[in-house]
Design a protein around this nucleic acid. Sequence first.
DNA 1: CCCTCGATCAC
DNA 2: CCTCATATCGAGGG
Length: 363
Amino acid sequence: MEERIVFHVDFDYFYAQCEEIRDSKIKGKCVAVCIFSDRGGDSGAIATANYNARKFGVKSGIPIMLAKNKLKEEDAVFLPADFDYYSDMSSKGMEIIEKYADVFEYVGRDEAYLDVTKKTEADFHNAEHLAQQLKNEIRNNLKLTCSVGITPNKLLSKIASDYKKPDGLTTVKPEQVEEFLSPLKIREIPGIGKKTEDIFTQMNVHTIEELRRINIFDLNKIFGRKTGGYIFNSAKGIDTEIVKERPPTIQFSKIVTLKKNSKELKFLQENVMELCVQLNIIAIENNKMYRSIGIQFVNEDLSTKTKSRMLKNPVSNEDQLKKVANQLLEEALVEQVMLVRRIGVRISEFSDVEGQSSITNYF
DNA sequence: CCCTCGATCAC
DNA sequence: CCTCATATCGAGGG
């Protein structure tokens, strides 16, 4: 049997909505959830904003300073992100959602895919009913609203859940796929971001209908075989990816914004060492050994430099991590001309630690 | 085939 | 004015 019914469930303006739920007094105001960097003051970025704030151009990713400026005339609150609280809300929500699925795929704190083909007997009418029940249960239990896309695949459901927000429910049946996609901006396709959009703008391609007219050879030439094929199929609403449990994470990383821009070895070392400590703890908590270690610079101008090294054998050891990270740091600094704004460390190429006790004890 | 690195996306 | 974390792709060099 070919035909599937897939949900994409997306909690609306999630972090900001969580804050509204915690303190209903701020509902009706502009709410911006902030990630403050270690620089102090208002250095940092907006994680999420509610719809009141979005009306004034405040959205995720923009600098906090800029957001404050945009909202200076408004009744606005700027709250520090409280990820523990959001994770807790997320767990409670996911626990409810999961029950509605034949197959459940957790994507992130605020989104999930559900294959509901069996549950709905592949009937879209049944599916809409099921989705409404899901939304009701989430709202009644958590006071949380979400938007749902109901379509034959993950790609379309992701686009559909975004189509009407907040508190939306959008169904696209197989025979409606073309008319649904045609007028949409290409940016609506997940994976098409700013850069890709710019390229298409130069080619005078703005809507998905226009995108559909580009042949696959040209797409492959511009974007490579994989991405070209992905864009080509996406324009037609074709996506064969199945809903399945996510495989475990394959890398961990930590990055900080430095107190001051610098390229001084000693100062950068101190920061890298601290990141190593934290990362190794994460590795141990997850029972992982790692074989690849990398560092990352984000320069003054926000350009990025990475340097990584594969080890002979996997390790899970703080001193080893520090030693290699430090080597990489020294090597990277040799050719470094710009000052560094942010610095990060990454571990990957995991293997599982067997047994109860940490293997580090044996070295 | 394996490794390194930059780029892109998007949370 | 610019957070933080992860995944993926493609190029280039062994």
